[in-house]
Design a binder for these strands. Structure first.
Length: 491
RNA sequence: GGUUCCUUGGCCGAGUGGCUAGGCACCGGUCUGCAAAACCGUUUACGGCGGUUCGAAUCCGCCAGGAACCUCCA
């Protein structure tokens, strides 16, 4: 099997040829959402980035097991509610069972992902369903001497670990700097050093998410679930681990330490990180309170939005930037994406209207190869899209009767569009109208436009313009063609 | 303060030592009863100052501005 794909490995800070450990199988783990609120635009970025990777690896012929977790046990909050995790806090506020909160937001997350045409992962494990596995890893680390028990909690001994291995290799930190700069946090006296991190946390009496363990009732530490679940489903060593750049430190750094401390070697071969989405130049994030949820984008119901943006517009917007660049949100940028996407989808639809000629006057110029080349270069989706726009011009020229295309070239274009636009980039044509009475409704529009044709035949321009203007005002896009007319809903 | 990174035309956004990225917007033309869509064409660029080089937006240095992480975060 060839290995055409290069990906940027955060660990080495270089693009590397991707060669799976157990070809043709690929193991891929991506940090999923903490389900204590609705998914926002920031959550769409990794989901779409790694969906692109999942789709592409599959197209290259790999058999991919894609694991994306659901974090439903915690992560402590840093505000006044000391020691209470996010899910538990939300549950108390809403007087619900924690798992009820989890289920509610998982359902909504799935819906949003489905709208974005993000394929479901192969396995979507819940942290709460893998407490036993996590306890086992904690035990191993304790047995190997890289952790200590303190007041019912277990902490990772970073200094001890750093004597045998290097802590900080992923994020480029060294332990001396961190010992000097780590801030004092909420009186964690039970930790020996500020840089030590929790493997298992003792639960205070009011803490409602808790499980029995050898160290008392509690819950797993912040980074343990990915180590335990990645190993369970992908093995002690697997190919790809992905997530947002903001997880590089401490989350992924701690995962590396946990893996090495428990089984003596690293688990992950390629670390991949998507960059952030910014708003006014700043990261869009939960803690900054500057996020816009996906549902708000889809409905347009947010003060910062001048209109609604469809899921495909959001997807296309994200794919128009390379995944390692920040992408800045603005209404202008989103509107540009919306129009560009429409143009591409229109061209894709136009392919079925083209009549082939004996020869081509348009030059495809190795379109398919160029698209593969771009994908192989660390998933350069913006370049793929630019090639598709080039093809769009060719398609429209033929449609306008200003160029010709051969049967073979037409077939090639159809295949390339299907392969790249729909299968790999994961764009799907958006539904034009909803409801069960589409046929009758369409016929009414046809009838109005037929009346307009009649008016035009009588040179009754006033009537012709009135029909067109009013339909336009209602959101229809009217085109006159040589045979009559075409229409569609403009959004 | 430490670590890492960024600064491209009106907006978004690729790229990279010499060859038009692309999209959106704008302008001119073709088409049209007029439009819309489409096609053709044009315009606007690589933060500042130095250096390396035959040649730098691309490499190096300094400066300015900005960001992420160092605390839950995609």
């Amino acid at each position: 099997m060839e290995h055409p794909l290069s990906i940027y490995n955060t660990l080495t800070r270089k693009k590397e040829q991707f060669v799976p450990l157990h070809e043709p199988h690929v193991g891929m783990y991506v940090c999923g959402p903490t389900v204590y609120g609705d998914a926002h635009l920031g959550h769409a970025r990794p989901a779409i980035t790694f969906d692109l990777l999942f789709r592409y690896l599959t197209h290259l012929g790999y058999k991919v097991r894609y694991v994306r977790n659901i974090t439903d046990v915690g992560h402590l909050e840093n505000d006044a509610d000391e020691g209470e995790d996010k899910i538990a806090k939300k549950a108390r506020l809403e007087q619900l069972e924690p798992m009820e909160v989890v289920q509610f937001y998982v359902n909504r997350y799935h819906k949003a992902m489905d709208d974005l045409n993000v394929l479901p992962p192969s396995i979507e494990p819940h942290a709460s369903g893998h407490i036993i596995e996590q306890i086992e890893v904690v035990k191993e680390i304790l047995d190997n001497g890289y952790a200590y028990v303190s007041e019912g909690s277990v902490y990772f001994d970073v200094e001890r670990y750093n004597k045998d291995f290097k802590y900080g290799k992923l994020s480029g930190r060294n332990i001396e700097d961190m010992l000097n700069t780590t801030r004092e946090l909420d009186g964690q006296q039970e930790k020996r050093k500020a840089i030590d991190f929790a493997l298992w946390k003792n639960a205070s009496p009011e803490h409602i998410m808790r499980w029995p363990s050898p160290w008392g009732n509690g819950f797993p530490g912040w980074h343990m679930e990915c180590t335990a679940m990645g190993r369970k489903y992908l093995g002690e060593t697997f190919d790809i681990h992905g997530g947002g750049m903001d997880l590089v430190f401490p989350h992924h750094e701690c995962e590396i330490a946990q893996a090495v401390a428990s089984c003596g070697h690293e688990a992950v071969r390629y670390w991949m990180h998507n960059n952030m989405i910014t708003i006014n130049g700043q990261k869009m994030g939960k803690s900054l309170g500057n996020f816009i949820t996906l549902d708000e984008f889809f409905s347009g119901n947010h003060a910062s939005l001048t209109q609604a943006y469809s899921p495909m517009t959001i997807r296309f917007f994200i794919l128009q930037a390379h995944y390692r660049s920040t992408v800045d949100f603005s209404n202008e940028a989103l509107q540009a994406s919306e129009k560009g996407l429409q143009r591409l989808l229109e061209a894709a639809a136009n392919l079925d209207k083209l009549t082939p000629s004996a020869t081509s006057s348009v030059e495809l110029g190795g379109l398919r190869a160029k698209c593969f080349e771009a994908m192989n270069d660390d998933l350069n989706s913006p370049i793929v899209i630019s090639h598709l726009f080039d093809a769009t011009r060719a398609i429209n020229s033929v449609l306008a009767g200003q160029a010709t295309i051969s049967e073979a070239d037409l077939a090639e274009l159809k295949e390339v569009f299907k392969l790249f636009l729909f299968d790999i980039l994961g764009i799907k044509p958006e539904q034009q109208a909803e409801g069960g009475n589409n046929e009758a409704y369409g016929k009414v529009v046809d009838m109005l436009l037929q009346m307009r044709i009649d008016a035009k035949a009588n040179k009754d321009w006033a009537m012709a313009d009135k029909i067109r203007n009013e339909l336009t005002a209602l959101g229809f896009e009217i085109k006159d063609t040589k045979d009559g007319f075409e229409w569609k809903l403009s959004k």
